[in-house]
């Protein structure tokens, strides 16, 4: 076992802390955007925006919000998440097929 974890220079640790702070700032910004999307979605329904596009818009708002959650809160934007992306996109693809099958063939 190398001894390098014991002798990390102080300035390096300061650099890491700064990095963490930067990431935290992005995450707080992400949170603000997620709140905004939620407000828009609820607002549209409460104000009874009567439009053909309201359901697609609601779904797009949800998908964007979930992408923020996955990429920023769950760190999928960081390095070393290739397998993670494969599993989540694989899961999402099967999920979509499942929903299409259930709503079109099984219980129509």
């Amino acid at each position: 076992m190398a001894d390098n974890t014991h002798s990390k220079p102080v300035h390096h640790r300061e650099f890491e802390k700064k990095q963490h702070r930067e990431e935290m700032k992005q995450q707080v910004l992400t949170f603000a955007l997620m709140i905004l999307f939620t407000l828009i979605a609820f607002g549209m329904v409460i104000m009874e925006v009567n439009s053909y596009f309201i359901i697609p818009t609601l779904i797009i708002l949800a998908v964007v919000q979930v992408a923020f959650q996955l990429y920023y809160f769950m760190h999928m934007k960081n390095k070393g998440h290739d397998m993670v992306a494969l599993m989540m996109y694989g899961g999402a693809a099967v999920a979509l097929l499942t929903i299409i099958t259930f709503t079109s063939i099984i219980w129509w």
Binding site: M87, M88, G91, A92, V94, A95, T98, I99, F102
Partner: peptide, 14 residues
Amino acid sequence: LGGETVLFASLFGT
């Protein structure tokens, strides 16, 4: 979590 996604999709589909 990839598996959970599919699990919840089946409940959403239902």
